[in-house]
């Protein structure tokens, strides 16, 4: 092995080690009850951490995420349903905490916009194909064109 490959392998091992230890840390259960913990994780997978916005509440290691997970645990122990817990967070932080935004007038564009665009695309394609079909089918040869064609054919025909 060259020095380079040795270094590459060492680097790979080191990074994978770091990654696994990071993952092991974020899943550390803080509740004694595995059922509560499982539900908490399931709920917080669906919620966004407000500090590091592209992470779920379950994965984030931000201070606030930790506090919010504590709140979710508390609410689970108070026998709240998943929906009630999500509503609790939405009432404080807004729809933004939900990874699946609710369907309501302000999010119609978000949910149905792509389908509207698709419908436009299909309609444009249909119109385009029809027009092209009509153009190619409905263009008769004028008598002059016919004469030219015949003249050209004759030219090529060696007698």
């Amino acid at each position: 092995m060259t020095m380079r490959t040795v270094l590459a392998v060492a680097f790979f091992l080191l990074t994978s080690l770091l990654v696994t230890s990071a993952q092991a840390k974020e899943a550390a259960p803080l509740s004694d009850d595995p059922v509560v913990e499982a539900r908490m994780m399931a709920i917080s997978e669906e919620l966004r951490c407000l500090v590091c916005q592209n992470e779920t509440l379950a994965a984030s290691r931000a201070e606030l995420a930790d506090d919010l997970r504590k709140e979710v645990r508390r609410l689970i122990r108070e026998q709240k349903t998943d929906q009630e817990i999500k509503d609790y967070l939405v009432s404080r932080y807004g729809d933004f905490v939900l990874y699946r935004p609710p369907v309501k007038p302000t999010t119609w564009l978000l949910w149905f916009g792509p389908f509207v665009l698709l419908a436009f695309g299909v309609a444009a394609l249909v119109v385009f194909l029809r027009r092209r079909g009509q153009l190619t089918a409905a263009l008769p040869l004028s008598s002059e064109d016919k004469k030219r064609a015949e003249a050209l054919l004759k030219e090529k025909d060696p007698k």
């Binding site: 500090v51 606030l64 709140e71 404080r92």
Partner: peptide, 13 residues
């Protein structure tokens, strides 16, 4: 002290 009121107010930063 524990940030509970902060959560009620939707404080995140």
């Amino acid at each position: 002290i524990d940030g509970r009121v902060g959560i009620d107010y939707g404080v995140y930063g």
